[in-house]
């Protein structure tokens, strides 16, 4: 063979400039996305004097847990100085029933719309689609009035009802899409076996809805936890969720700003959805894809 190199086996791989650039971009992007989290964490462990002299990117010279204690139990929201712990409890009280009820309603709707083709089904579907896309501002004022009429405004059940109402479009679309992929023959077979509306739902459809229930739960837990607007307007002073409390703590005008306390409170607020995100992993991505409501 005159060829000095005789190609045989796998082609030798070289690290090309393109490949290096690719990793450089990814590492740079990762740094950009991680930076705020890093700043949040280091700030929350610094003392205020250090924050005022030092720079936001440096590690704390001596670790202090005081900001966390203050954020949890002593930070002031206006006149109340009970920390963010009240908000945590409120957020759970709002999130758990809202998640459960909105998923239940969405599942029933999705099931009824996909298999039973009820009268007016298309109208429901159209309104829900619209509801998923239209800014909430349009509904707010009349909804406040309606809830006051039935004495639900500024109550815990009131804010739960609001979450169920506005969670319904996405939940319904989610389950409708999921059930649309279930073979109709399965439904027909269940009908021939004598199953009624509820029997088929609880015995056939729900048991095979595991994946979508997980996705729905992820969407609702993070979505309701992260809500600010509804909590602000509908929850009432005694049930303000954590996001609203957090904003009140940070934007309280009394005294000097305690940035370390603010950041500790911010991390605490972000904690629940972040845990959901890291634990659920690929399911979260599935939730996004499903939430993207592809027809």
């Amino acid at each position: 063979m005159s060829d000095p190199i005789h190609p045989r086996g796998a082609k030798p791989r070289h690290l090309t400039p393109g490949r290096i650039g690719l990793y450089a971009f990814l590492v740079f992007a990762a740094a950009f996305f991680l930076l705020p989290f890093y700043v949040m964490v280091v700030t929350s462990f610094k003392t205020m004097p250090e924050i005022q002299q030092g720079n936001i990117f440096s590690l704390p010279s001596k670790l202090t847990l005081a900001p966390w204690v203050t954020a949890w139990a002593k930070a002031c929201t206006g006149v109340n100085c009970e920390g963010i712990r009240v908000g945590v409890l409120n957020s759970f009280k709002i999130m758990i029933p809202s998640t459960f009820l909105s998923i239940l309603l969405g599942a029933i709707n999705g099931y009824a719309l996909s298999f039973w083709r009820p009268r007016g089904g298309n109208l429901i579907f159209a309104v829900l689609l619209m509801g998923a896309f239209i800014p909430y501002q349009v509904y707010l004022y009349p909804l406040v009035r309606m809830l006051s009429m039935v004495s639900l405004y500024n109550t815990l059940p009131g804010i739960i009802v609001v979450h169920v109402i506005f969670g319904m479009p996405v939940m319904t679309l989610l389950f409708r899409n999921y059930y649309a992929a279930v073979p109709v023959d399965l439904f027909k077979a269940a009908r021939i076996d004598g199953g009624g509306f509820w029997t088929i739902f609880t015995r056939v459809m729900l048991p095979m809805s595991g994946p979508i229930l997980v996705v729905a739960a992820i969407l609702q837990v993070t979505g309701i936890w992260n809500d600010f607007l509804f909590g602000l307007i509908f929850a009432g002073r005694d049930h303000l969720p954590m996001t609203v409390e957090l904003n009140n703590i940070v934007n309280t005008t009394t005294g000097t700003k305690a940035y370390n306390v603010n950041m500790a409170a911010t991390i605490l607020t972000a904690m629940v959805p972040l845990i959901v995100y890291f634990v659920s992993g690929r399911w979260f991505v599935r939730g996004i894809a499903a939430g993207a409501v592809k027809g």
Partner: peptide, 12 residues
């Protein structure tokens, strides 16, 4: 890393 901010609220 790229997706985690999406889990956090706009407030945060």
């Amino acid at each position: 890393i790229f997706l985690y901010p999406y889990a956090m609220s706009f407030i945060v």
